[in-house]
């Protein structure tokens, strides 16, 4: 366990003015969910390629730069591996059908992510939670306002934790200690410490106080 690689940090939204950028976030997420559902049932190569072509057209319509593709690298590797397996097990047609279908969904997700600001996506989720909160029993459990805060907090915290881990790895290296235990545990302890201080900040800024009353 010597080499550690960190994938793309957050911040995949790429501002723009295209039709895709301007489309409501809720609509885009709904279409993405619909596409995912359709692809789950598509096995034939031609319809799958058709879907992929449709998504690729959306990509062009949004005029996204190539760097928006960074986010799909990981899944691309998995898809190639599974595609190779499928080719071997069931022939090229089945392999193309599966890889094209799944690629369509993955690419569509990349398009939605790149064209929609985070807060709009969160606003959609909060609207969904508001609807849930009106359901009699769930209403006691769901607090949409603090959910939005929690989502933003996750986005804010990921880079911090990547820094914390990097710092812990550097410290371990400086002391000549190797292996994950030398940096993993310090990282975890600092992570919990960070969470405790963040809790103090949430409390001091009175954020849950207003979530409650509004």
């Amino acid at each position: 366990m010597s080499r550690v690689r960190v994938a793309t940090p957050l911040g995949l939204h790429i501002p723009g003015t295209s039709v895709v950028h301007r489309a409501p976030a809720g609509l885009k997420l709904a279409l993405l969910a619909a596409l995912g559902t359709v692809v789950a049932f598509v096995r034939e190569p031609l319809p799958a390629l058709g879907l992929l072509g449709f998504v690729a057209a959306t990509w062009l319509l949004a005029r996204l730069p190539l760097r928006a593709l960074r986010q799909v690298r990981g899944v691309a590797v998995l898809l190639v591996a599974l595609g190779a397996f499928r080719w071997w097990a069931a022939g090229p047609g089945a392999a193309v059908g599966m890889v094209a279908g799944l690629s369509a969904v993955v690419l569509a997700a990349a398009v939605v992510t790149a064209t929609t600001p985070t807060d709009e996506i969160v606003a959609v989720l909060v609207r969904g939670l508001r609807a849930l909160a009106r359901v009699p029993l769930l209403g006691r459990v769901v607090v949409p306002e603090s959910f939005a805060l929690a989502v933003a907090l996750v986005l804010r915290t990921v880079p911090t934790l990547l820094d914390v881990a990097q710092g812990a790895r550097d410290a371990a290296r400086a002391r000549g200690v190797r292996g994950p235990r030398a940096w993993l545990l310090p990282t975890l302890l600092r992570t919990v410490g960070h969470a405790v201080r963040t809790g103090e900040a949430i409390h001091a800024r009175g954020l849950l106080d207003t979530a409650r009353t509004s």
Binding site: L10, G11, T118, L149, A152, L153, L155, R156, T160, H194, R197, T198, E200, A201, I202, R205, L207
Partner: peptide
């Protein structure tokens, strides 16, 4: 706080 890292809550 001394350390703004935990105090800044939004991206």
């Amino acid at each position: 706080f001394a350390d703004p890292e935990a105090q800044l809550l939004m991206p």
